[in-house]
């Protein structure tokens, strides 16, 4: 069997082919060609789309350009969710490349956070890591790190440097052997069928009796609608990084191996395709 460490690499280098097209609502001086890009699943839309922006600015007048934002089939895409989460949640089971519309005006103030510079993404990313460590280690690991260590985590993500990121991130993944896992698992469950953006609660990786709790246990407790009895047709898919992990997988293993760089396990629950 392949080493579990290989999983970290596979997760980090996951890519989604995307086709960016300028929204027809935008005013251009000449026709805008679509722009194709391989998007890293673990990164953020606004962090990896400088080229997309440059490409479309070539056909636009400066006065028609405000803050850039993205939309997929009428849904504004939240840049502060990792790209892979946006794709799994909104575009699983659709044809590739993922077709994303680009806007430069009418910023949807009621749906999206502003992102005027990379420092906003960095602040969001670091605040997620801090929150995750509050859950995992009562913030002890992240508080023991120095500023340059925090910077190393961010630079690793920003520059797509797997080794640089993981040299530091492995400290955030440690736990006392006798405890069998983190204090709580940092996770979020997203559903397209819900008004709530996500479900996030306290959940321990080990039961009171001492056995490892699984993805199935987590869903049963916090999102029971997502799992069905064996004799029922499957109504939902439970996706992490574009795959459906077995419900028997321990959540501690998932947290260590399938978390995003922000240290959260992002779980998308989507309607099963009806074929």
């Amino acid at each position: 069997m392949a080493d579990d460490k290989d999983v970290l690499r596979d997760v980090w280098f996951g890519r989604i082919p995307a086709c960016f097209t300028l929204s027809p609502e935008e005013t251009t001086e000449r026709e805008a060609e679509p722009y194709y890009l391989l998007l890293p699943r673990v990164s953020y839309l606004t962090l990896v789309t400088d080229k997309v922006k440059k490409h479309f600015l070539k056909v636009m007048k400066a006065e028609d350009v405000e803050e850039m934002w993205f939309e997929y089939e009428g849904t504004p895409l939240k840049w502060h969710y990792p790209i892979g989460v946006l794709f799994d949640l909104h575009a699983s089971n659709t044809a590739l490349p993922w077709s994303v519309s680009v806007h430069f005006k009418s910023f949807p103030e009621h749906d999206l956070l502003h992102c005027t510079s990379n420092s906003v993404i960095e602040a969001h990313f670091m605040s997620s890591i801090k929150e995750a460590d509050a859950l995992k280690h009562k913030s002890q690991v992240i508080n023991d790190m120095q500023k340059k260590d925090h910077k190393q985590l961010w630079m690793g993500l920003q520059n797509d440097k797997f080794d640089q990121f993981w040299a530091m991130n492995r400290k955030l993944m440690e736990y006392p052997t006798e405890e069998g896992g983190f204090r709580y698992i940092p996770f979020r469950i997203y559903q397209t069928t819900s008004d709530r953006p996500f479900i996030q609660k306290l959940f321990r990786p080990v039961s009171a009796e001492g056995h490892a709790l699984t993805l199935g246990d987590l869903l049963k407790e916090l999102c029971p609608a997502s799992i069905c009895a064996e004799d029922e047709p499957k109504r939902f898919q439970v996706m992490v990084h574009g795959i459906e992990p077995l419900l028997e997988t321990p959540v501690q293993w998932l947290s260590e191996h399938l978390s995003h760089p922000d240290n959260f396990l992002h779980i998308s629950v989507i309607p099963a395709p009806s074929d």
Binding site: K78, H80, E109, H110, D111, L112, L113, H114, S119, V120, E122, A123, H124, S127, D195, R196, P197, F198, Q200
Partner: peptide
């Protein structure tokens, strides 16, 4: 400034 006052998603409403 980025540490103390920031724009964030409301965790129950999903709005900025």
């Amino acid at each position: 400034p980025w540490d103390t006052l920031t724009q964030q998603e409301h965790p129950l409403l999903g709005q900025p």
